[in-house]
């Protein structure tokens, strides 16, 4: 059980340290506007990379067709400015329906 406690503690402390980077620097260091803009752009780049890898891959391989199809449905709904709820339920619904129909 000590191994588990160690893993949890190391992960918790390390993760919190990452999360403190922003608040710790904020107000102490005056970030130039250009860097500020780059950070905001960086957040969007990270989020899109997350959603792309999350939509298409699972454990380093292809995630199967149902998930990307569901995400694509959600993306189209978002593109058409559908309400948030419709996007979320649409994506999950298409993936679930495809799986129910036997598509992995």
């Amino acid at each position: 059980m000590n191994a588990t406690v160690t893993a949890i503690l190391v992960l918790a402390v390390g993760t919190y340290a990452f999360r403190l980077v922003g608040p710790a620097l904020h107000g102490r260091v005056e970030l130039p506007d250009r860097l500020r803009e780059l950070l905001a752009a960086g957040a969007v780049v990270l989020l899109v990379a997350l959603l792309a890898t999350g939509a298409l891959t699972e454990a380093g391989g292809f995630a199967g067709w149902a998930r990307p199809a569901g995400v694509l449905a959600g993306a189209l709904l978002a593109w058409r400015r559908a309400p948030f709820a419709v996007v979320v339920l649409g994506a999950a619904g298409v993936a679930a329906a495809l799986r129910a129909a036997g598509v992995a």
Partner: peptide, 12 residues
């Protein structure tokens, strides 16, 4: 199908 919902949330 929740695995498809999370990337779609980020798209929106």
């Amino acid at each position: 199908g929740l695995d498809a919902a999370f990337p779609a949330v980020l798209v929106a």
